[in-house]
Amino acid sequence: MTQFIVNGQDVTLDIDPDIPLLWALRDDLHLTGTKFGCGVAQCGACTVMLNGMPRRSCVTPLSMVEGSEVTTIEGMTGPEIEAVKAAWVAIDVPQCGWCQSGQIMSATALLQQSASAPTDAEIDAAMAGNVCRCATYVRVRAAIHDAARTLEL
């Protein structure tokens, strides 16, 4: 029995505590915005917020989130996610879209943790864990800069 908070709601799951959070979110809670891309923390498509910090849910056993707050793309709120989503749409970042939840979670975390507008090097360091096979990287970078401007960082 694992109790935790998902997108602000108390959740109790009576399933194998070894199940990766990714599959609990997708298969048991039907929160499918969080994607499976590699299963081995190489691609970042499964990124969620765990107690406010970005976390690869594919390598996070359910037992680890007992008592924690998990936020998925569906439950993100606040100025940073709003600025990121607006920039993503304005710059038309996604192509196939599969990796984009993860890209957006990492980008939002970067802006949440940035006291000033992130440099290209800081964007590289923060986003290097998020693979985009469509190679939307030019626009990911542009959109993060754009969101930083919106947030007046």
Binding site: L31, T72, E74, V89, D92, G97, I104
Partner: peptide, 8 residues
């Protein structure tokens, strides 16, 4: 399809 691909 961009909006739906940015909010999950």
């Amino acid at each position: 399809d961009t909006v739906a691909k940015t909010d999950g």
